[in-house]
């Protein structure tokens, strides 16, 4: 299928992009890497009148480290993030997760911010953002604001971003003694997973970010609390039944998905040792 006709504009500044977004309202859509949006347009699941291309905005670029906070510009491509030395050193979970995001051609265009703003429940990065306790930077006509990851993913393909806001970047707090783990089960390399886990253990807290388990990426609070309190891994596995929604889809029944989630939890946390 072909996309329905649309207008296209590439503003030079972030401010201009926000002005356009405000002026055109719901008829406009931002386009970054286009790797999720264009398939949706071609399937005619979405037919915006105007695409505002933010793909080349310098304000959305750059990966920096300051004050024990890693900042990733929303416009960085998956490939840039995955291979960046700061990411590999301070947020290896993200580099690892990105290796399972699609294929090289898609990673060369798809953006970090695009994936988070798209809020696909099967995507890896939202779960990583939850597990890493990231903070989203948004900017709209009223100026910038910050949104904790835990409040960002509100519903299926929906976020806390207002319709006239742009996600500009993400902050990730960095701590020295962080343990992490990542595992997903996908039928083929690069496919969206049937179920996946991004796990982070920092002194005093363990966060278990799950994807492909329901309407959004979610944190498994009860299982994490069990582990944080030093409880046995099997107890955390049991607790997952309450944490994860019963989610059926053609790939896996809810029972199978819960079973697989427990397998992943055992493998990821088991690899940390000591439980």
């Amino acid at each position: 299928m072909k996309a329905a006709a649309f207008d296209y504009i590439r503003p030079e500044t972030l401010g201009a992009a926000i002005t356009l977004l405000t002026r055109h309202g719901p008829d406009a859509k931002l386009i970054a890497g286009g790797q999720s949006l264009l398939p949706a347009l071609n399937l005619r699941l979405s037919a915006p009148g105007l695409l505002i291309d933010i793909g080349r905005l310098a304000a959305l670029r750059g990966i920096t480290l300051a004050d024990r906070t890693l900042h990733i510009g929303a416009g960085c491509t998956h490939a840039q993030v995955m291979t960046h030395p700061l990411i590999q050193r301070h947020a290896p979970l993200i580099a690892r997760a990105l290796a399972d995001v699609a294929h090289p051609a898609i990673r060369a265009r798809g953006t970090f911010g695009g994936s988070l703003a798209n809020a696909d429940p099967a995507a890896e990065l939202p779960a990583c953002a939850l597990a890493l306790d990231a903070v989203m930077h948004a900017q709209g006509p009223a100026g910038p604001r910050r949104i904790p990851a835990a409040e960002f993913f509100t519903a299926l393909f929906e976020t806390a971003l207002a319709p006239d806001e742009v996600l500009t970047g993400v902050d990730i707090p960095i701590q020295g003694d962080t343990q992490w783990g990542f595992a997903e089960l996908a039928r083929r390399t690069g496919d969206y997973a049937m179920v996946g886990l991004a796990a982070v253990a920092r002194p005093g807290t363990i966060r278990l970010g799950w994807f492909s388990v329901g309407q959004t990426a979610i944190l498994a609070h009860r299982a994490a609390a069990t582990l944080t309190e030093g409880g046995p891994l099997e107890a955390a596995c049991t607790a997952l039944a309450d944490d994860l929604p019963a989610h059926d889809d053609p790939q896996a029944s809810a029972a199978m998905r819960l079973h697989l989630a427990r397998v992943l939890l055992r493998r990821v946390v088991g690899a940390w040792g000591g439980r």
């Binding site: 398939p39 039928r187 083929r188 690069g190 053609p250």
Partner: peptide
């Protein structure tokens, strides 16, 4: 047909 797209119909790929 529930999986009539390349996203849902799994053709064998090189990786596997």
């Amino acid at each position: 047909m529930l999986n009539a797209s390349m996203a849902d119909y799994l053709v064998p790929m090189a990786g596997e």
